[in-house]
Simulated assay, not measured.
Amino acid sequence: MKIKIKICGIREESALEAVIDAGADFGGFIFHDKSPRNLTIEEAASLSKRANGRIARVGLIVNPQDAFLDELFAKVELEALQLQGSESPERVQAIRERYGVDVWKAISVATKRDIQSAQAYQQSADLILFDAKTPPGALPGGMGLRFDWTLLDGIEMDLPWGLAGGLSPDNVSKAIQLTRAPMVDVCSGTERAPGIKDVDKITAFCKAALQA
């Protein structure tokens, strides 16, 4: 089965084109004003239009309010919404039903108990994304941190799932071989500086993942 690849934190048309050309399955747009990768709704609408039919579009957001989501979905076409905050299973289900979009739930991982907590979302999410837990007060992702991949040993999920956190062209092959993750998600590992994509790293990451 072909590994699925998501490149997150796309801000520029040139980066979007590089992600598509490299063969990624998902392009990620971030809506979080504390992130150097944050997009306005207008910026995202332009990128989404350019990507339409060429790559699946995923919006990343942290503990969103309905008012923001109403405006977002009125102006930006997305195939999925990635919830990166402390959203409960009930909140995930409510968003999924209200907007009729696939909802991915990111699980912040530091211990085996964190992995097990994903079970609570089996009925409400469409995909679980295991990501590294960041320090209190830090950004909820995109910091290049990774968790102990052996925590995923023996994982049994009824839902599709993916691996994120500290992935790069240099380690993604090992990560896939060790965890058997069916999907990988990268952000800072394909940048030359926070919020600025590196075309060569995007290409190298996708090549390494597909060859793993």
Rank of each mutant, 00 (worst) to 15 (best):
L83F: 12
L83Q: 15
Q84S: 12
Q84M: 04
G85P: 06
S86F: 12
S86G: 07
E87F: 10
E87D: 15
R91W: 11
V92W: 06
A94Q: 08
A94L: 10
I95C: 05
I95M: 12
I95K: 07
R96Y: 06
R96C: 15
R98F: 07
D102S: 12
D102K: 15
A106I: 05
A106V: 13
A106N: 09
I107H: 02
S108M: 04
V109I: 10
A110Q: 11
T111G: 15
R113G: 15
R113V: 09
I115C: 09
Q116G: 05
S117H: 06
A120T: 11
Y121H: 12
Y121I: 09
Q122C: 03
Q122V: 07
S124Y: 10
S124N: 09
D126N: 14
L127C: 14
L127M: 12
I128H: 12
I128D: 02
L129G: 00
L129I: 10
F130K: 05
F130R: 11
D131C: 02
A132H: 00
T134G: 07
L139P: 03
L139H: 07
G141Y: 07
M143V: 08
L145D: 06
W149G: 13
W149P: 14
L151A: 11
L152A: 11
L152Y: 07
D153V: 12
D153L: 10
G154C: 12
I155C: 00
I155F: 14
E156L: 03
E156D: 09
M157E: 09
M157A: 09
L159F: 01
G162I: 02
G162R: 10
A164N: 10
A164T: 13
G165L: 06
G166P: 05
P169Q: 01
P169H: 10
P169V: 08
N171E: 10
N171Y: 06
S173Y: 04
A175D: 10
A175K: 07
A175S: 08
Q177M: 01
L178Q: 15
T179C: 02
V184P: 04
V184A: 02
D185V: 01
D185R: 01
